[in-house]
Simulated scan of single mutants.
Amino acid sequence: MKKIRKPIQIAALRFEKPSAIAGEPGSIETEVVALCDDGSIWTILGNDNEWVPLPPIPQDQLREDWLAAVGEELVSGFLVQRNAISGILEEYRQELRLAFNSHESAKDAAKAVNAKLQAHR
């Protein structure tokens, strides 16, 4: 049997939408956002639009797994000492966060970090 998605929390936002015609008043629009029991978040604007899913919220474990993969790439592909990995990941935390959020592969992120490490030697 197919599980039915159910909203567990709903928020409504009202705002003024400017008129497309100069000098005419805008309209009041309503956007509804719903958090569902399957973890998805949906939004709808106005009464006659369709519900649209918002992108999933990243999970910390995914980032931790990705960082571990970056560390493994540094050790195996660039011969960085394993005991130096945690310090390197901390030092390049901001760049790695941006790379993760940009969906860059762990291999490409390790390559970029290695290039910076080599430039500092």
Rank of each mutant, 00 (worst) to 15 (best):
M1R: 14
K3N: 11
K3F: 13
I4S: 12
R5K: 12
K6A: 11
K6D: 06
Q9T: 12
I10F: 07
I10R: 13
I10D: 07
A12P: 10
L13Y: 14
R14W: 14
R14P: 10
R14Y: 14
F15Y: 14
E16A: 12
E16I: 15
K17D: 08
P18D: 03
S19P: 00
A20S: 12
A20W: 13
I21Y: 13
G23V: 04
G23S: 01
E24I: 11
E24G: 07
S27Y: 09
S27T: 14
E29I: 04
T30A: 08
T30D: 05
E31I: 10
E31N: 06
V32N: 06
V32E: 10
L35Q: 03
L35W: 07
C36S: 02
D37C: 00
D37N: 05
D38A: 07
I41H: 03
I41P: 05
W42A: 03
W42G: 00
I44C: 12
I44H: 06
I44P: 03
G46C: 05
G46Q: 01
N49S: 14
P53W: 08
L54A: 10
L54D: 05
P55R: 03
P56Q: 09
I57E: 04
I57C: 08
P58V: 08
P58G: 06
Q59D: 13
Q61T: 14
L62Q: 07
L62K: 12
D65I: 12
D65L: 14
W66H: 06
W66C: 00
L67C: 04
V70D: 00
E72I: 10
E73A: 15
L74A: 05
V75R: 03
V75I: 09
S76V: 13
S76R: 13
G77P: 08
L79G: 08
V80T: 10
Q81H: 11
Q81S: 09
A84W: 10
S86K: 09
S86Q: 13
I88Q: 02
L89K: 01
E90P: 07
E91N: 13
Y92D: 03
Y92C: 04
Y92M: 04
R93P: 00
R93H: 07
L96Y: 02
L96K: 04
L98S: 11
L98C: 06
A99T: 03
N101P: 04
N101W: 08
S102H: 11
S102Y: 06
H103W: 07
H103K: 12
E104P: 09
E104N: 09
K107T: 15
D108G: 08
A109S: 08
A110R: 04
A110S: 05
A110N: 01
A110H: 02
A110L: 01
A112K: 11
N114T: 00
K116F: 00
L117Y: 04
L117M: 14
A119H: 02
A119V: 00
H120W: 07
R121I: 07
